[in-house]
Nucleic acid binder design. Structure first.
Lengths: 192, 192
DNA sequence: ATTATTCTGAAACAAATGTTTCAGAATTGG
DNA sequence: CCAATTCTGAAACATTTGTTTCAGAATAAT
């Protein structure tokens, strides 16, 4: 027998995520957040919690979206190699068109070393990325789409860590061609 | 006709760098810095300047050290490939034994997007890293130490961006074997 | 030794930080 | 409509932030 929460919580999380994503955890103030979320700090503390808790929810939300993307790609029922190549091209597009790098990467370097909860969310996310790549590589090998003289586990680890450096490169040089050429070399390694 | 600065400025920069390196720019307070540097904030502002200026000096110092390391390695007069392989092994050691990741990488993601001066220091540093790799790869090709069917410029870019992901991987998994295996695969690609 | 200049320490500064308080508006179920 | 409960807005909170002030200690050159 009382009123309900007035604001849309998942929309508010989305807005907060965008601010954290762009500015990073420490450079984002509570005012930045409540402005973007369009709620009062009392509502924030009553429902979600403090800044740390909100950040955890945002990182979780970010990784949830990625998880859905991977699932959708696998459900496509296309050949393993074409899913893989599609994914790489899309990753390149995100890097060269996105305006604030990858939140998971930024968070790994800024926060994960000091916050165990955040780290565990990123570890789980990384594990899903690994599984996505590993399964595609393994299946592509079994179907003869790519050479099979390397361990799929090694290749999955290796490729999974490769994108991170492309983000850094693009922050420094803003050179799309550089990224595209690296991606082409990357694909060539797999297939030839 | 007056007294001189009492503290050792380059030692103070070194101490400040260690704090920034570990905690990042935004999570480091002026108190953290003056405590580590063992000077009063008035001395800091009289000599070096404000927090931003101090950070710039620290990043510059960090990249200066790297520059010296590259020069020393090239002066070694050993074969290009052995210099390269040595360097990769040393990079792995730094990743798996260092206790706070790479300051250049962390700074690229946390600060370089918002601070043009810091970004330019990192761009110059990245260019030196690129040159180091490019020259070694090119020379190794000319001396027949490695295959020469790829563009040295592409390989230098590609390899230069690869380490960054290894740092991220180690933050999340703290698994030295993972890093070592990726490094071995990395070297194998070059030589085989 | 004197003097002119510069450095240092401690305190003070305003502004910004993350968080809490609470009166009153709102809305639910009865 | 009532009453009980919960939400919201604005203000206030104590800390912490980056930075400045300034009196006095220190020292270089004369």
């Amino acid at each position: 027998m009382a009123r309900n929460v007035e604001f849309d919580e998942s929309l508010a999380i989305q807005k907060a995520m965008e601010v954290f994503w762009k500015k990073g955890y420490n450079a984002t103030s509570l005012r930045d957040l409540t402005d973007a979320m369009q709620i009062n700090s009392s509502s924030l503390y009553n429902t979600i919690g403090d800044k740390q808790e909100l950040f955890v929810r945002c990182v979780q939300h970010y990784t949830d979206i990625r998880k859905q993307d991977w699932e959708k790609r696998l459900a496509g029922k296309r050949s393993p190699l074409s899913i893989l190549v599609d994914y790489i091209h899309e990753a390149v597009n995100v890097i060269i068109n996105g305006e604030s790098s990858c939140m998971a990467v930024k968070t790994a370097f800024e926060v994960a070393t000091n916050d165990e909860r955040v780290k565990q969310i990123l570890v789980a996310d990384d594990q899903r990325a690994y599984n996505f790549l590993h399964d595609l590589i393994k299946n592509a090998m079994e179907e003869g789409e790519i050479r099979d003289d390397e361990d799929p586990a090694l290749l999955a680890d290796y490729f999974n860590s490769t994108w991170t450096g492309w983000y850094e490169s693009f922050i420094l040089h803003q050179d799309p061609v550089k990224i595209k050429r690296m991606a082409e070399y990357f694909i060539k390694q797999l297939t030839k």
